[in-house]
Design a protein around this nucleic acid. Structure first.
Lengths: 206, 206
DNA sequence: CACTAAATTAACCATACGGTTAAAATAATT
DNA sequence: AATTATTTTAACCGTATGGTTAATTTAGTG
């Protein structure tokens, strides 16, 4: 494989990511991706066969930012559970800040096409039942709470971390009066706020 | 306007809501909406002129479930702030449970087309600067916290309420192992969990 | 350099889609 | 009942879109 081939493939993926993340699978146009990559549309098919296949690559890449990595953090055995939760939050926020549009992309596409999720896990060889084990045998057991309480805890954490980015257009407009600087300031404070909230919720059993 | 005309218009809107909420503006097809409504495609144009206009009606209706109603709750002056927050949470969850797919619809469309939001507020005569006033003069002042802390509080509340529905495909698969009953059970417990979490966060100044 | 293989492009194709139109069916008005 | 206005439909139109193909350019190889 020549460098050119590698470069072209990467250039296509970069352009595809841009367009798919911004417009979604249905709103994206192969021609727009080609334009963004500065090449002929036929090349996209030459390298990736179809729009769906190309999209799948982009979606896969996006999911890989969170899976299985984030699950592993909670599963690692040495560290005490409180530290694990903190590491989870810090890592999660870091990933989202580095890829601020990925969460809404993933969530938007999954709401339109939930089967993609199963497909991704199967093809990536990720065993989702491990999460059940972690909820029960790690989080619930080590914190002395029920499985259901552990579920609420995890959902709370994810919600608090992700939502500002997923709901950004709404929040920026109504809470921040379209002031982007104040929104960025808000985001930079976010980690401390969430850690604070979750820490006390753990000390009081969810 | 005859009853038939009213009925046809409503039938179209119902079908359009179904399809638009499920597939989004880009993924929806006028033919599919016509099929869902059991009528000829030309009728959609006869009543609503274009796909965009029809979509706008559906989007408007969806937004109206939350605005300006939810803002008003926080602004009402008689009740003490703690009660206001609780009323906000309870009302919010109620609306979402009655319209479980609306949040992801709104958020998904706004992420692809943020200008729709400004358009909606302008056309609905909703003054978004009222939120700034409420954050500063109601929430921050009555709770004795900064405006920024008030923002975090509001975002926390919305995040905790909305996210389980917006992220449902993900959560149902990984946290609930595709078990819908357990997810529903989880949702029914949600209000108490959120109230609990937010109450203590208020007592400790965000 | 000649020749082969891979990469890239311009032109094209079939189809799906939003939208229109003219005719048919139904309802309202006299 | 006759006439007019409104609602509904079938057939159609132009175009955008995903995808293909045949030719051209570029890179690799003896």
């Amino acid at each position: 494989m020549t460098d050119d081939k590698v470069d072209t493939e990467k250039a296509i993926l970069n352009a595809a990511r841009q367009v798919f993340v911004r417009k979604g699978l249905d709103g994206a146009r192969m021609q727009e991706i080609a334009d963004e990559a500065g090449m002929n549309k036929a090349l996209l098919h030459y390298y990736f066969r179809s729009k769906e296949k190309l999209f799948k690559m982009v979606f896969r890449e996006a999911m890989s930012k969170f899976f299985p990595g984030m699950v592993v953090i909670l599963g690692s055995s040495e560290i005490p559970i409180e530290k694990k939760v903190e590491a989870f939050i810090e890592n999660y926020i870091k990933i989202i800040q580095e890829n601020p549009f990925i969460p809404s992309f993933i969530i938007g596409e999954l709401n339109k096409n939930p089967e993609q999720l199963t497909e991704f896990f199967v093809e990536s060889g990720i065993d989702t039942s491990k999460v059940a084990f972690i909820l029960k045998e790690v989080i619930a057991k080590e914190l002395g709470i029920t499985i259901q309480q552990a579920r609420h805890l995890v959902v709370n954490i994810i919600a608090l971390c992700v939502f500002p980015f997923v709901g950004r257009p709404l929040l920026e407009k109504i809470i921040f009066q379209s002031n982007q600087d104040e929104f960025d300031q808000f985001i930079s404070e976010r980690k401390a706020v969430i850690l604070n909230l979750i820490r006390t919720s753990i000390n009081r059993s969810v």
